[in-house]
Design a protein around this nucleic acid. Structure first.
Length: 767
DNA sequence: CAGCCATATCTTTTT
DNA sequence: GATATGGCTG
């Protein structure tokens, strides 16, 4: 008992010791909320004699679930694996696999990811004879998803919108979409939650069973729950009322995905006799970082007041750098990281670069490669959404569930079997007319006129799937069989391109995942494997400890922490994003501000904010003013450091180098958004900033002085010279390109091969 | 039917 | 600028 409470602060202890009844934990960033949940679970088991079977802990990501289980394991010991720790979605899948037949679905249903949804919606748009140019799949899917998040079935949605003529089409499409999902025996992600709620509402015995089973429910990241998830929780907890939710309304950043902030704001009203405990002591960041975060979030109106505090020291000021271009922004950060690793003993894994949109990652990637810094981009492309992987998974899906028309259509002509779009169209129509699945219609292809030429391919396909269904050896042999018999890998091998090479590697890691699943699962099944694949995101498998700089969106960073955090693209129009400003949408701006708060509070030791006068976006050059969030941080917390001289002010074209911004009072900028909105602070708050110094702080990246490149001249080496580099050793200079005073030097290193480096950053010494 | 070139589009996205 | 889709041609 004393063990379980050791090291907890008063509020944390109160939360752990709370007995029965609803409990709301308002847990600020870095306040040790996972610790509280895990200790509370341990306390319930050890001290209150609750059976581990009766505890349900819900999270949003598999990663969070995994971490929580691991930590509970350490506290509770072996009985911990009896505790049901999982995501909302996999919990619902488990329940539905048992009882969904009561709702008229088969229990071996497929789970549709967003690609599958799009494919299905595309078909519907076509069958409604709508112009696909005018009507995007996403538009309809977004409406449907919002309806499902709000627990509106097609009938409910129709009722709610019956008076609105414009909604007529949406109603029809939603109805059709749901009908087709059912005939494909498929559920989309939203269905998983919505149908579980429906099941609980309609089948009293099922609800009762799970109420008895889960007498104690814990929910992490509660601020991100949507209405459907809320109802799920309300139903499950209505008997014993032991619902403990942990969340931070200031970190609600998924409104666009249906998260309902009122779930947390109104929790006390909805659940009478709620005990509310605030966890306000922060164990992560310095005072300065915390102060910056608090000052920013203060500007939001719709929030629960709370004040984070820390026993940590002031720490370094927040660094703010306004660079000339996005290119320089990336370059400066890459240099700064290298400098800190070299001179301050930091590890690459101590750094995170956070941006608003994935599209911003590219340029950082480029610069990090130049600098020879190991990095990992997180979340941009999901492993399972790669073409080759999706193709192979669709084979698995078809073997598992022949009703899955979307999967069948995707692979019927992959690899090429001479079954083209027209044949598919004809068979599809035949299937609809006879009310059978597309797969079943394939075996009647001979009766369908106009499919003669593709008949052989179709029969080959049917034969293949049929024989795969008799492969009962193992999942590994099944996937290998698919790869062999489709000739997928051979086809790629024949290509002999780097892309094909990469795909082969991906296929190999898919096999690895299948093998791993089979090893780690008690009773591996094909549908279990597919479920794992559908519900486990790429980010879940990222090893955060590996020694690489992490690049990700601000959204992706939630729940993580790093000693050094760079928030980049701090410009109005980029962050906060265009629509929040352009539409003058206060609600959306508040969501962006929460995102900013999330970003700031990821930093433990040093927070660096950067922006650029000029940046390329969507193929066009933009000029944005500094982010309004920068202005919301009081100036005494900030140390502004310079970037490069804006090119426009540099009359001699070749004169690059660095300068002190105090000379011109920050930066001159023009803005496309300037006319639209007026920021609260009209003057640049940094114009008289006493903190202005040259370079990236005192731990400057060396951009102003170090290296062989001087501010004015060429490096002292030239093509053909032998040079040495701290990391890469010796090599020969094979090329130099002038980039406005800075040189892109190509060096052929003896041990590392040819590499491109920038003279201003890379310390190259002539030998 | 398949491969190639032209045009459109471009927040965020735990599952 | 990069990618995905659509239309055209072989």
């Amino acid at each position: 008992m004393s063990d379980l409470l050791y090291g907890l602060n008063d509020n944390q202890r109160d939360a752990v010791l709370h007995g029965d009844g609803p409990l709301l934990l308002l847990a600020g960033a870095g306040s040790g909320k996972t610790r509280v949940i895990t200790h509370r679970i341990a306390y319930l088991i050890a001290e209150r004699g609750i059976s581990p079977y009766q505890i349900l802990a819900l999270t949003f990501t598999n990663k969070a679930a995994g971490e929580m289980r691991e930590r509970v394991d350490n506290l509770v010991g072996e009985s911990a694996d009896k505790i049901w720790v999982s995501t909302f979605h996999s919990t619902c899948v488990k329940i539905l696999r048992r009882y969904i037949d009561r709702l008229g679905y088969e229990r071996d249903f497929s789970i549709y990811d967003s690609d599958d949804q799009k494919a299905l919606m595309k078909e519907i748009i076509k069958s409604f004879e709508l112009d696909p140019k005018k009507f995007k799949e996403r538009t309809f899917l977004n409406v449907i998803s919002s309806a499902k998040d709000e627990m509106l079935f097609p009938e409910d949605f129709a009722r709610e919108n019956e008076s609105d003529y414009n909604m007529k089409r949406y109603i029809e499409i939603y109805t059709e979409y749901q009908k087709r999902l059912r005939s494909n025996n498929a559920l989309d992600f939203d269905d998983l939650i919505m149908l579980t709620v429906k099941l609980f509402r309609e089948e009293a015995d099922v609800l009762d069973y799970y109420q008895e089973r889960f007498r104690y429910i814990m929910v992490d990241e509660y601020q991100d729950t949507n209405t459907a998830q809320f109802q799920l929780l309300a139903l499950l907890s209505s008997k014993y009322k032991n619902l403990c939710v942990v969340g931070d309304d200031d970190q609600s950043i998924y409104k666009f995905r249906g998260a309902n902030i009122h779930n947390i704001l109104n929790f006390e009203k909805v659940f009478p006799n709620t005990t509310t405990i605030r966890l306000e002591q922060n164990y992560r960041s310095t005072k300065n970082i915390l102060a910056a975060a608090s000052e920013v979030i203060k500007n939001n109106n719709e929030r629960k007041e709370k004040t984070l505090w820390t026993e940590a020291g002031e720490g370094d000021p927040i660094i703010y750098a306004r660079l000339d271009t996005d290119y320089e922004e990336a370059q400066t950060i890459a240099g700064d990281i290298r400098k800190k690793v070299r001179d301050e003993g930091a590890s690459y894994s101590d750094f995170a670069v956070l941006y608003r949109t994935n599209a911003q990652s590219r340029i950082f990637e480029e610069k990090l490669v130049y600098e020879g810094i190991p990095y990992r981009i997180i979340g941009a492309i999901n492993f399972y959404s790669r073409k080759e992987i999706k193709d192979l998974i669709c084979y698995l899906k078809v073997v598992n569930n022949g009703s899955d028309d979307i999967a069948v259509k995707r692979i019927i002509n992959v690899p090429k079997r001479g079954v083209g779009a027209t044949s598919i169209e004809k068979i599809s129509r035949f299937a609809t007319m006879n009310d059978i699945s597309f797969y079943d219609a394939l075996s009647h292809a001979a009766e369908i006129p106009g499919t003669g030429r593709s008949l052989k391919g179709i029969n080959d396909f049917l034969e293949l799937i049929d024989s795969l269904r008799y492969d009962e050896l193992s999942l590994e042999s099944l996937i290998r069989d698919i790869i062999d018999r489709t000739g997928y890998q051979k086809e790629l091998e024949a290509e002999e391109t780097p892309e094909a090479e990469a795909r082969i590697e991906n296929i190999e890691s898919l096999i690895d995942k299948v093998v791993k699943y089979e090893e780690e699962t008690d009773e591996p099944t094909l549908s279990g494997l597919l479920e794992d694949i559908a519900l486990v995101a790429d980010i879940d498998t990222v090893d955060m400890d590996s020694d690489q700089v992490k690049l990700m969106t601000l959204h992706g960073a939630k729940g993580l922490e790093f000693p050094y955090v760079y928030m980049v693209g701090m410009e109005d129009g980029v962050f906060p994003g265009g629509s929040a400003i352009f539409m003058d949408d206060e609600e959306e701006l508040e969501e962006e501000r929460r995102l900013c708060y999330v970003g700031i509070t990821r930093a433990k030791k040093l927070l660096t904010l950067t922006g650029a006068n000029q940046r390329m976006r969507n193929g066009k050059t933009e000029f944005n003013r500094p982010s309004r969030f920068i202005h919301e941080i009081p100036r005494y917390l900030i140390k502004q450091v310079s970037g490069a001289m804006p090119k426009k002010q540099s009359f001699s074209a070749d004169e690059g180098g660095w300068y002190t911004p105090s000379a011109s009072g920050g930066s001159t900028y023009s803005s496309t958004a300037a006319r639209k909105s007026t920021p609260k602070n009209k003057n640049n708050i940094f114009s008289n900033n006493p903190y202005i110094t040259k370079g990236m702080g005192n731990t400057s990246s060396g951009s102003s002085s170090s290296g062989s490149a001087s501010d004015t001249g060429k490096p002292d080496y030239a093509v053909g010279d032998t040079v040495s580099h701290v990391k890469f050793g010796e090599g020969t200079v094979t090329g130099m390109v002038d980039k406005g005073g800075n040189y892109e030097v190509t060096v052929d290193f003896e041990d590392f091969g040819p590499r491109k480096l920038l003279s201003s950053f890379a310390k190259l010494e002539k030998i």
